[in-house]
């Protein structure tokens, strides 16, 4: 019998608790399993939240390598601290809080060093996004520059904001989180979030006035 035939005749093994079946579980169940040391359950949690955590850290640092390191550290720290998670807030909020604090600490330590951009490329959909199309097709100085240059100007302006103001803009205007959730993540009240957002937008409008109407 050839190896291929032998393999075909073997009974199919259905994984009992592999990542495929774990993917159907809700978040509290996955968290409970991960708290018991189930790394496969934690793997599912990582895959669910990695993009948003990475995006937040990346927008704060404007550096892909730093964002990759901090995202990795955030999940490792979350796993090590998972037994202390009591479920007072959602896992998402708790995880975000770790990521935000880690990022703020990183930026505080790096405050005296010059900032180094390492921007990610824009995806293919950027040129077809209605907002972006409207942005570059109007009669403004923006017409003269391409999207990559606009991206660099935008990131440079964002980095001129203080860390907390930048974080609020990222979480609200880019990530689309509600004020209350941001307040939970940043450990402040929603009034503070609103006032920080208002001030940050004013500053950004002043910094990017050449590219706005």
């Amino acid at each position: 019998m050839r190896p291929a035939d032998f393999a075909r005749d073997r009974p199919i093994e259905i994984p009992v608790s592999g990542p495929q079946s774990l993917g159907d579980l809700d978040e509290p169940s996955l968290v409970r399993r991960a708290q018991g040391g189930d790394l496969d359950a934690f793997d599912v949690l990582v895959r669910r939240h990695q993009e948003r955590v990475y995006a937040t850290v990346y927008h704060m640092t404007a550096n892909h390598e730093d964002a990759a390191d901090i995202t990795q550290e955030t999940f490792i720290k979350a796993y090590n601290a998972l037994r202390g998670f009591k479920g007072d807030c959602s896992f998402f909020t708790w995880l975000y809080r770790i990521g935000v604090n880690r990022t703020l600490n990183f930026l505080k330590q790096r405050r005296n060093r010059p900032l180094q951009f390492s921007l990610n490329d824009l995806d293919f959909n950027a040129e077809h996004d209605p907002d972006i199309v409207a942005l570059v097709s109007e009669q403004t100085p923006r017409r003269a520059i391409d999207l990559t240059e606009l991206q660099q100007k935008l990131n440079a302006a964002m980095l001129k904001l203080s860390e907390v103001h930048r974080m609020v803009v990222i979480l609200h205007d880019i990530q689309g989180l509600p004020h209350e959730e941001i307040a939970g993540i940043m450990d402040c009240n929603s009034g503070t979030v609103r006032s920080r957002l208002f001030y940050a937008r004013q500053q950004l409008q002043a910094l990017l006035s050449d590219y706005l109407k």
Binding site: H59, L122, D123, D131, L212
Partner: peptide, 15 residues
């Protein structure tokens, strides 16, 4: 306009 400009950030993707 600012929100439109900020939407550009959503299209920045890692490798």
């Amino acid at each position: 306009d600012l929100l439109q400009l900020l939407s550009l950030k959503r299209h920045e993707m890692p490798p």
